[in-house]
Simulated assay, not measured.
Amino acid sequence: MKKTHIAALMILISGMTFATCDQSKFYSGLPTHLSGYEFKSKLSNLLTKTHRSLSYDDLHQAYTRSDRDKTYDGDNTILDMYSENPNGRDPYKFRAGQKKCGQYRNEGDCYNREHLFPQGLFGKRRPMKTDIFHVYPSDGKVNGMRSSYPFGEVGEARWISENGSKLGRSKDPAYRRTVFEPIDEFKGDIARAMLYFAVRYESRIPSFRYNDMTDGSRDQTYSTWFLKTLLKWHKQDPVSEHERYRNDQACRYQKNRNPFIDHPEWALAIWEVQ
């Protein structure tokens, strides 16, 4: 093939890739007149069809772009939801590619890759294990303390991180066991990541192990108490500039998007819980 033809082909491919991550074009084929679980299934098909599976090492490389702090401190450090202090000085910072776990004993020792939807529930299988839209860089110590506990609102804390995230007994009367609560600034971020997971892996959810936050169904996916918490956080903590930036950058690597960042209204169009 002549060099001119190769160059033209590369330009075409580059243009196609850019168009794929363009918001308006990405969703252009969706039947948006639908709602509820019917719409959820159509959205799941889109996210699955466009998803390019990453390797576990790819995540660290992607974080050097997707998780730079461009909005809070603007210092290009790795933005960790468990150490970021949106109203003051961060207790510690992570530079991209440095202090990756590794070994840790204390907060600030290193950062690793946290699966917001616990990977033990899907047997550590790909593409779930390496899906950047629910696998976030986080402090190793705090990630270890969160373990596989559901997210929720803590009544009585038995451990508090340096930025105020808590582990303790839930104050939700519908669920009184141990939960992990991030600070208010990132509750919506986590909720939208978990809702993404429910849509992207709709067809696989019934084969996963259950825990207290899941109900095993492909439709609702999450236990009612937990889904109510996610939708509450989604409404109370609107989409941030960092989320929009991360969504765009992550798409460059994985080729799909988190639709609840682009269209927050779709979450309530899909799930209705009393």
Rank of each mutant, 00 (worst) to 15 (best):
M1P: 03
M1I: 12
T4H: 15
H5A: 10
H5Q: 14
A7N: 12
I13S: 13
I13V: 15
T17L: 13
F18Y: 12
G29M: 13
L30K: 06
L30E: 02
G36S: 06
Y37F: 11
K40N: 08
S41I: 15
S41K: 15
K42V: 05
L43K: 02
N45P: 03
L46H: 08
T50S: 07
S53H: 09
L54N: 00
Y56K: 07
Y56Q: 05
Q61S: 08
R65D: 06
R68A: 06
R68G: 10
T71K: 11
D73S: 14
G74E: 06
D80Y: 02
M81R: 02
M81A: 03
S83C: 15
S83M: 06
R89M: 10
P91F: 05
Y92F: 14
F94Q: 04
A96W: 07
G97H: 10
Q98F: 08
K99R: 09
G102K: 11
E107D: 09
G108C: 07
G108A: 09
D109W: 05
C110D: 02
C110R: 01
Q119V: 01
G120C: 10
F122M: 04
K124D: 12
K124F: 12
P127R: 13
I132W: 02
I132G: 01
H134Q: 11
V135R: 02
P137R: 02
S138T: 05
G140V: 06
K141R: 10
P150K: 08
E153V: 13
V154E: 00
G155W: 03
G155F: 03
I160D: 02
K166M: 13
K166R: 14
G168S: 15
K171R: 13
D172W: 12
D172H: 12
A174L: 13
Y175V: 03
R177S: 14
F180E: 03
P182N: 11
I183L: 05
D184N: 12
D184Q: 14
E185Y: 05
E185N: 11
F186L: 07
F186E: 04
K187V: 05
G188Q: 04
G188K: 01
D189C: 09
A193E: 02
A198Y: 02
R200I: 00
E202Q: 14
S203Q: 12
R204H: 14
R209D: 07
Y210V: 13
N211P: 08
N211S: 15
D212Q: 15
D212F: 10
M213F: 09
D215F: 05
D215N: 09
S217F: 07
D219N: 10
D219F: 12
Q220W: 04
Y222D: 01
Y222N: 00
S223L: 09
L231E: 04
K232G: 14
H234T: 06
H234I: 07
K235H: 08
V239T: 00
S240A: 09
A250S: 09
C251L: 02
R252N: 12
K255T: 09
N256W: 01
R257H: 05
N258G: 04
N258W: 00
F260H: 04
W266D: 00
A267I: 09
L268Y: 03
A269T: 06
A269R: 11
I270Y: 02
W271Y: 12
Q274H: 12
